[in-house]
């Protein structure tokens, strides 16, 4: 255990994981309440485009994730039809186009450089390889994310449950929607650093869905979600560290696998508990 905490990459990973878990818990509760799991998932997939672009330009993938997240948030709001089905189709189309572009960038990555790992790194994450230099930026983004939720809390809650009532009360619903999408984009950028782009929605939606089954009050659910996220992320990192000697490869199992598996088990556990209570 002392070896575990003495390792620099592990310490960075624990800090990065904690920041991502807390922001996704807070933002995730609203994602679930607003029924925007698909959009959250789309941000993750779309982060692939940013991540692969960043690889091509040889900059920190975080910048790729964040910039694509912001652009996509705007695009989704623009095409975002109010009806749920229409919105899902629009999300899907944006997603498809961006994934196509990501395919091209990743292809160019592999042809330009001899390192072929870009796709895997971007898609499945590499938390032990996060440069400690990006910590201040990530901390800033995480702090801004939590502050934004606190500031937007009431209008966001009202517009989630009853958009018409919210706009009657003078809430600028479109601006709030856009703001929330940007928030989701930033959050998913942070979780992408932990578990990779295509797994990031698990951290956004999973702990929040568990928490909402345990408490009906959004504020309590946010704290619970952040806590659950923190536990699964740290446990995932510890397990990945421990797995270095495990078969079959003796090269360590991926962090993202452990985190996502723990999230899924937590969700099944909470659902089973709720079912048993009736």
């Amino acid at each position: 255990m002392t070896g575990f905490l003495a390792s620099d990459p592990v310490r960075v990973a624990l800090v990065v994981g904690a920041m991502a878990a807390v922001v996704s818990g807070v933002v995730g509760v609203f994602t679930v309440v607003r029924g925007q799991s698909f959009a959250g998932h789309a941000f993750g997939d779309l982060g692939t485009l940013g991540g692969s672009g960043a690889f091509l330009l040889n900059v920190n993938p975080l910048w790729g994730f964040v910039s694509v997240g912001a652009v996509v948030a705007g695009a989704m709001e623009l095409v975002g039809v109010q009806r749920r089905r229409g919105r899902d189709v629009a999300t899907g189309i944006v997603l498809g186009a961006a994934l196509g572009a990501a395919a091209l960038l990743l292809y160019l990555d592999t042809t330009r450089s001899s390192t072929t790992g870009a796709a895997v790194t971007v898609l499945f994450g590499s938390i032990f390889a996060v440069a400690s230099g990006s910590l201040p930026v990530m901390a800033g983004l995480a702090g801004a994310g939590v502050l934004a939720v606190v500031a937007l809390y009431r209008p966001l809650l009202l517009s989630s449950f009853h958009p018409e009532l919210a706009s009657v009360r003078g809430v600028p619903v479109r601006a709030v929607t856009l703001g929330f999408l940007v928030l989701m984009g930033v959050t998913v950028s942070l979780t992408s650093m932990v578990v990779g782009t295509i797994l990031s929605p698990a951290l956004l939606v999973g702990p929040a869905a568990c928490a909402l089954r345990l408490s009906r009050r959004p504020g309590v659910a946010m704290v619970l979600a952040a806590g659950i996220g923190l536990v699964v992320t740290w446990a995932g990192i510890a397990l990945a560290y421990a797995s270095a000697t495990w078969p079959p490869s003796h090269a360590g199992w991926p962090v993202s696998f452990f985190v996502v598996a723990l999230v899924f088990l937590a969700y099944l556990g909470v659902e089973a508990g709720a079912a048993a209570r009736g």
Binding site: F124, A202, V205, F257, V260
Partner: peptide, 15 residues
């Protein structure tokens, strides 16, 4: 939510 989680769990297994 279930779709998102099932997909993530399977992708994690893939990883």
């Amino acid at each position: 939510v279930v779709t998102a989680l099932v997909v993530a769990a399977m992708l994690g297994l893939g990883a």
